[in-house]
C-alpha cells in the first residue's frame, strides 16, 4: 500500500516537474480556453440574463475540450506512441500508473480552471465566491479525467489516436458534463444545494465507478 501511494505520488510529481519546465501543455490549454471564452462571448450576442444562464454550459464545454487536449498530450510524453514502457518496466502496480496519470491530468485541468475562472466571472457576470461551484469543478474534473485517462491509454495504442480520443471520450463523458453543468448552473444562479443535489449524486456515482473500472481494467489496456 505504501509503495502504491508513493508510486502514484512519484508519477504525479514527475509530470508536474516536467510541465513546470516546459509549460507547454498548460499554456496551450490556457490559450485555448481564453480564445473560446472570447469567441463565445463575441458570437453569442446576448443579454446579461441569458448570458448568466448559459455560463455553466459554456464553462464545461470549454473545460472538456481543453481537458481533451491535455489528455492527448500527457500520454504522448510517455515513450513513443504513449506506450508507457518506462513506467511499465518498474515494479509498481499498473493501477498505480493509472491513478498517477489521472491525478496529473486532474492537476493540469484544475490549474487551467483556476486561471480562467476570473475571466468567466467578468464576461458572464457570475460570482466565484461559491464553495458549491468549487466542489462541482473538482468533482466534475475528477470524473472527466478518470474516464479520459482510461480512454486516452486505449486511443494511444490505436491508429489516428489524437483524432480518436475526443470521439471516444465525449459521448462517454456526457453524463459528467450534463450533471456538472446542471450543478454549476444551480450554484451560479444562486439556487443552492437543493437544486444541485441530484446532479451532484450522479457526479459522485460516476466519480466512484469510473476509477474503480480503471483500477480493474488498466492492466488489460497496457498489457501486450
Amino acid at each position: 500500500m505504501a509503495s502504491f501511494v508513493s508510486a502514484i505520488w512519484a508519477i504525479l510529481r514527475k509530470d508536474i516537474a516536467a510541465e513546470w519546465r516546459s509549460r507547454q501543455l498548460v499554456t496551450a490549454m490556457l490559450v485555448f480556453v481564453v480564445l473560446v471564452i472570447f469567441i463565445f462571448a463575441f458570437t453569442l450576442d446576448i443579454d446579461t440574463l441569458t448570458r448568466r444562464q448559459i455560463a455553466a454550459g459554456v464553462l464545461w464545454t470549454t473545460f472538456a475540450f481543453a481537458g481533451t487536449l491535455g489528455l492527448n498530450r500527457t500520454l504522448a510524453s510517455e515513450g513513443e506512441r504513449g506506450s508507457l514502457d518506462g513506467l511499465l518496466l518498474a515494479p509498481v502496480e499498473r493501477s498505480a500508473i493509472y491513478f498517477g496519470k489521472t491525478l496529473a491530468n486532474l492537476f493540469f485541468m484544475l490549474v487551467v480552471e483556476i486561471f480562467t475562472l476570473p475571466l468567466y466571472a467578468v464576461f458572464y457576470d457570475m460570482s466565484l465566491a461559491q464553495p458549491g461551484l468549487w466542489l462541482v469543478l473538482l468533482l466534475g474534473s475528477w470524473c472527466f479525467c478518470s474516464v479520459g485517462t482510461l480512454l486516452a491509454a486505449m486511443a494511444a495504442q490505436a491508429r489516428s489516436r489524437e483524432l480518436l480520443l475526443p470521439v471516444l471520450l465525449l459521448p462517454m463523458a456526457l453524463p459528467v458534463l450534463v450533471a456538472a453543468v446542471r450543478a454549476s448552473s444551480a450554484f451560479v444562479n444562486g439556487l443552492g444545494l437543493e437544486y444541485a443535489q441530484a446532479s451532484l449524486n450522479i457526479l459522485v456515482v460516476y466519480g466512484l465507478i469510473m476509477p474503480a473500472l480503471g483500477f480493474m481494467f488498466f492492466d488489460f489496456i497496457v498489457e501486450e
Binding site: L151, L174, I202
Partner: peptide, 18 residues
C-alpha cells in the same frame, strides 16, 4: 471488451443525468 463495459455503465448514467 473494456469499452463495451464502460459504455454499459455510462449510457444509463447519461439517461439519469438528462
Amino acid at each position: 471488451a473494456i469499452y463495451a463495459i464502460l459504455a454499459a455503465v455510462t449510457v444509463p448514467l447519461t439517461f439519469f443525468s438528462i
